[in-house]
Design a protein around this nucleic acid. Structure first.
Lengths: 247, 247
DNA sequence: GAATTTTATGAGATATATGTCAATTAATCG
DNA sequence: CGATTAATTGACATATATCTCATAAAATTC
């Protein structure tokens, strides 16, 4: 599955740097050196990502998750109170990874117009490179408001920077952020459903820049310019991951 | 509930004309002169609107619908095969009403910029004036693609008109339509959740116009100008509504 | 390797949803 | 009014989901 990124790279020649969100069994891998209980919990979380991506949060059932994780039904309740608890656990973790990767991908970019455009494009590339996680992110963002807020926190800063630089001529507030995000998320949705191609990121970035007040020719140039190679793409460092779980 | 429109009118003084989507028990009223079976079916559909709006399509159950309609569980299955069938029935009807009302509200407007702005603003006013129907519309649009297409069919025409007039400098295709719609729907969502005020329609229309290539000052003026009074706001005419139901 | 602690299991109690149908009630008609 | 047709009912069979808990298995400790 990770190899999809490579394929996409071949299709979209201009793109040299690629962000890796995570492999499908990230949690399991991270926990491979930890105790047994941590490993089981990790398998459940990986399974939850798959099931949420396939069925959505609503339709997903604990049974499906335990079946996917190949553990007994009762095992689930050893580690999580209910479906919501595991949902928040994986959703927040995905958001955390996304923010971290995006931050890392933009260390060298200082121009507000470029930053805003890059963020949108890279978020889309990232979420599309591992569709399961992309789906989970998409669904989670609709449900958890504070999670959405954390994902867009850097966005607000970039938008305000642009206003300060005089390149954005629009009032920055919750309404704008929300509309901006909706454009990105709608594109992610279409991208994941195969209704939009690899240039969707650039197209929506272009529209967003125009909306913000960037001149059409500049918007086009920046949104479609080749992305710089990623400087740091080191895999996520395995972390402790709260092994004491008996609440 | 219908009186909310009046309150909103008071808050937003510039608005003289108001579109009425429908009252909460539209189907029942329409069927009041029809046979008993048509009336029962209508009660179920009104109940379905309430339940879908409250719980969403996924979480809604047939039991909840029959309870709201004050009929026995078995009665439901006399009129509908399952939840999906009643869902499509009410969803398509709402979309039909919306399109009809919007068309009527824009008979006098010929300028593409004004038409696009008006459509967004009036759709939002319409859907917000009867929140239950607005919620149902919002959820339905996510689920039924062809329904969304029908709601935005007039939009595509207006956008192409604007390109022909030289006021929109953007490529009109499915991607643009979808992004444009996402902006409107996101605003509807926030409006229904109380996260955005009555000016949200104008604000999003302004952003949309900028995105399409309209100069910022023009976009602002058109999006925030007072809406013309509605010329025709006659209530929906009670119609036959397929009384022969034995499939 | 026996004792102890940790982890996993799956049957089962509880709940809720779907869809059917024989029986009942209401409406209509001659 | 009695007969016939239309409409409604709610119990029931079926299915699926949640969460618990006594028991079993596995891992760890001494």
């Amino acid at each position: 599955m990770r190899y999809m990124s490579i394929n996409r790279l071949a299709l979209c020649g201009s793109q040299i740097g690629v962000l890796f969100l995570t492999s499908l069994d990230l949690f399991t891998r991270e926990a491979r050196n930890l105790g047994k209980s941590a490993r089981t919990k990790a398998r459940l979380m990986d399974a939850a990502v798959s099931v949420f991506a396939r069925d959505g949060f609503e339709a997903a059932s604990v049974n499906e998750i335990t079946r996917a994780a190949e553990v007994a039904n009762g095992t689930f309740y050893v580690y999580f109170k209910d479906k919501d608890e595991i949902a928040t656990a994986v959703a927040y973790r995905i958001a955390h990874d996304v923010v971290q990767q995006l931050d890392g991908a933009m260390v060298g970019v200082s121009d507000a117009v470029e930053r805003v455009s890059c963020a949108t494009r890279r978020l889309l590339d990232l979420a599309t490179s591992t569709p399961q996680w992309g789906q989970a992110l998409f669904r989670a963002v609709w449900i958890y408001n504070d999670l959405r807020d954390s994902v867009v926190s850097y966005l607000r800063a970039d938008l305000e920077r642009g206003v300060a630089q005089g390149v954005f001529t629009v009032e920055i507030d919750d309404f704008l952020i929300s509309t901006f995000s909706a454009m990105t998320m709608s594109t992610l949705f279409r991208r994941l459903n195969g209704e939009a191609g690899p240039d969707a990121g650039s197209r929506v970035a272009q529209l967003q820049l125009r909306m913000l007040g960037v001149a059409p020719d500049v918007a086009k140039r920046v949104a479609f310019q080749a992305l710089d190679p990623i400087t740091l793409t080191m895999p996520v460092i395995p972390r402790e991951m709260d092994r004491s779980k008996k609440n």
